[in-house]
Amino acid sequence: MGSERDTGARLALMCGLPKSGKTTYARRLQSHGWVRVCPDEIRRALHGRGHYPPAEPLVWANAELSVRALLLGGHRVVLDATNTTRHRRAPWLRLARELGVPVCAYVLKTPKEECLRRNQTSEEPVPPEVIDRMARQWEEVNEDGLEVHPVEG
Results as ranks from 00 to 15, higher is better:
141 V>F: 02
43 R>A: 01
109 K>P: 01
105 A>S: 10
108 L>Y: 09
110 T>M: 01
153 G>Q: 00
121 T>M: 02
151 V>Y: 13
147 E>G: 00
47 H>T: 07
18 P>H: 12
24 T>E: 04
23 T>H: 04
53 P>H: 04
30 Q>M: 12
107 V>R: 11
68 R>G: 02
103 V>G: 08
69 A>N: 09
11 L>Q: 10
147 E>N: 01
119 N>T: 08
99 L>I: 11
127 P>I: 10
134 M>A: 00
140 E>H: 05
94 R>D: 14
6 D>P: 01
128 P>T: 03
103 V>E: 10
25 Y>L: 05
97 R>W: 09
122 S>D: 15
10 R>K: 12
22 K>F: 11
91 P>S: 08
128 P>M: 02
36 R>M: 14
142 N>R: 15
14 M>A: 15
8 G>C: 10
12 A>T: 15
117 R>Q: 09
108 L>P: 03
42 I>M: 00
16 G>T: 12
107 V>Y: 13
16 G>Y: 12
58 L>E: 14
44 R>H: 13
81 A>R: 12
79 L>K: 08
63 A>N: 12
71 L>A: 08
16 G>C: 10
16 G>H: 11
96 A>G: 10
30 Q>S: 14
16 G>E: 05
118 R>P: 02
139 E>P: 00
69 A>S: 13
17 L>S: 13
5 R>E: 06
94 R>Q: 14
69 A>R: 12
25 Y>R: 15
93 L>Y: 08
19 K>M: 14
119 N>C: 04
112 K>Q: 15
57 P>Y: 13
117 R>I: 01
38 C>F: 05
48 G>N: 05
96 A>F: 12
95 L>M: 15
43 R>I: 02
104 C>A: 14
141 V>S: 01
145 G>F: 13
109 K>C: 12
77 V>L: 05
92 W>R: 00
67 V>G: 04
147 E>Y: 10
105 A>G: 01
117 R>N: 02
136 R>H: 12
